[in-house]
Design a binder for these strands. Structure first.
Length: 509
RNA sequence: GCCAGAGUAGCUCAGGGGUAGAGCAGGGGACUCAUAAGCCCUUGGUCGGGGGUUCAAAUCCCUCCUCUGGCACCA
């Protein structure tokens, strides 16, 4: 069996509800994994939640409930959203899972035994109110810590450290010899620059007196591990590392879909160094697909601006598919995108309703009116060749994860078909008995093109894909190979036309 | 500050030494199968400013300005 296309997303921190940015990342990963399934590749999508840590502990305390209870409640919100958005994940990584905990502890113990983890004292300024150490970043303009930190004391604490600095040279060599490890390329350049300046080791523990909600260090039960050796490890623990060798060999290495805010240093430096320390070979290092932010009306989403968009609202107002389409079509992979209601509605009306939806509708109506929906197998060479080229270009784009480009290419076929309707004017052919064969060819060509379009949109618009195939009365179980011309048999009878994407008339302001 | 990227039509962006491009928005037209959709035509830009190289610069070089990102644990 060939290697599985193993794709993961960042696991989301469960101290608050998911927003449109979380949704974007999961949809992107979902589209890519659906594409690989369509191609017939063995595929596996892992997503999940990061449930440990201080902010969860604090948020739970604030509500007067246990961290377990709090996390269960918040996690449910993520699961509910992913189901609504049709994120077709195969594995669910929740960091409180015993499987994960066992894996983390085995890794820590092993690194400890090999001397990659050591204990050292840290002395610094500590905010009693916020229960955290402060760095120079937290200092105000005047160089002092602001009142929001409450009482600040100087404190000494013993913690465990990972010998990150030992892996700096290897990391530089690895990045230099593996262009394409990070997409887009400029992110790899940034990572390389950051790695060059890397100095010092990485604190990986917190005393339980400060943070109890985490995974206990196997060699020091007075501490829990802090974020890195917990959250990052999910990518391998849930892939069977140290628990199911066959599964792990099949899946690993992964393509990590992550946001631009966590490539440096978390994934690009810490995670790669951690894997190296665990003994992973260069060819078993993951690759990264780094996406940008979803801006709202040109601004970064933030609580203080009060412009956080709830994906549920969008899904309920405009439909899940229009949200998936808009996010995938309007965002150049790797770049930020601007999310505005107006633009979403515009894209929906222009691309989904007017172009594709109307093409389906007019085709079925003409076939019904002129031929009672019955087709004669045939081919308009210009269009079938165009369709074949479209599939080729589409594949080339998606093989490079360029979802927006694949959609643009796909819609090129829909546009070509709409023009073809005008060129061939079936309503004129229908009035001339001598043109009967020509009319049959036009109708079959349009129906067949729609069948191909339905296949191509399937990764992004699974429901609309099924909807088109249903109306064509074509089989719903499809693969990319089915885009070959002539799938609809001679004498095939099309289904009833229904409006697939009703126009959104009210300008959403 | 250092590093990277960007600044091209109202908007989103492509192009990258030889007469300025696409989609959407705006304007006009012919048609009628269709979700007043689709199709055709069209308005619109001294390609951030200034210098330079060149027969020729949006494109190469220098410089300045602006924005974004990274360096600095929030998808």
């Amino acid at each position: 069996m060939s290697k599985t296309f193993y794709i993961t997303t960042a696991i989301d921190y469960t101290n608050a509800a998911p927003h449109i940015g979380h949704a974007y990342e999961k949809i992107l990963a979902d589209v890519l994994v659906r594409y690989h399934r369509l191609k017939g590749d063995s595929s596996y999508l892992l997503t999940g939640v990061d449930q440990h840590g201080q902010k969860v502990q604090q948020a739970a305390a604030k509500e007067g409930i246990s961290p377990e209870e709090f996390v269960t409640k918040t996690t449910a919100k993520f699961i509910e959203l992913w189901e609504k958005l049709e994120i077709s994940y195969d594995g669910w990584a929740a960091t409180t899972d015993p499987l994960h905990k066992t894996c983390v502890q085995k890794i820590l113990q092993d690194l400890y035994d090999r001397g990659d983890i050591y204990k050292a004292k840290y002395r610094g300024f500590y905010s009693v109110r916020q229960e955290q150490f402060l760095t120079d970043k937290e200092r105000g303009e005047d160089g002092n810590f602001g009142p929001e930190w409450g009482e600040v004391v100087e404190l000494e604490e013993e913690n465990w450290y990972f010998r990150l600095g030992n892996y700096r040279d290897w990391l530089l060599q690895f990045l230099d010899s593996h262009p394409g490890c990070v997409q887009p390329a400029f992110r790899q350049t940034e990572l390389r620059n950051a790695a060059e300046r890397l100095s010092g080791d990485l604190s990986i523990s917190r005393p339980k007196s400060r943070l109890a909600w985490g995974i206990e260090l196997p060699f020091d039960t007075s501490c829990v591990t802090y974020v890195w050796f917990d959250a990052l490890v999910n990518y391998i623990s849930f892939a069977g590392y140290l628990s199911d060798d066959a599964k792990f060999r099949q899946l690993w290495p992964a393509l990590h879909v992550i946001g631009k805010d966590i490539i440096i240093p978390a994934h690009g430096i810490y995670w790669l160094a951690m894997l190296k320390a665990m003994g992973f070979a260069d060819e078993d290092m993951p690759r990264f697909l780094v996406h940008g932010y979803v801006l709202v009306d040109g601004e970064k989403m933030s609580k203080s601006l009060g412009n956080i968009r709830d994906p549920h609202t969008f899904a309920d107002t405009f439909g899940v598919e229009s949200l998936r389409y808009f996010l995938m079509r309007d965002c150049v992979v790797g770049q930020d995108m601007d999310f505005t209601d107006q633009r979403l509605v515009q894209r929906y009306n222009v691309d989904l309703a007017n172009s594709l939806g109307n093409l389906l509708n007019r085709t079925l109506n003409m076939a019904k009116r002129y031929r009672q929906g019955k087709l004669v197998r045939s081919e308009a060479a210009g269009i079938s060749a165009f369709a074949a080229q479209t599939v080729k270009d589409y594949t080339a784009a998606l093989d490079q994860n360029l979802v927006h480009q694949a959609l643009e290419i796909t819609w090129g076929l829909a546009t070509r078909c709409n023009a073809f309707v005008e060129e061939s004017a079936p309503w004129k052919l229908a009035k001339d008995p001598e043109k009967a064969q020509e009319l049959d060819t036009v109708l079959y060509t349009l129906a067949e093109s729609l069948r191909i379009l339905a296949i191509l949109i399937a990764p992004v618009l699974p429901r609309a894909s099924r909807g088109i195939l249903d109306q064509l009365a074509a089989p719903g179980d499809i693969t990319l190979a089915d885009t070959a011309w002539g799938g609809l048999p001679d004498g095939h009878v099309l289904g009833e036309p229904q409006v697939l994407f009703p126009r959104i008339e009210a300008a959403a302001e």
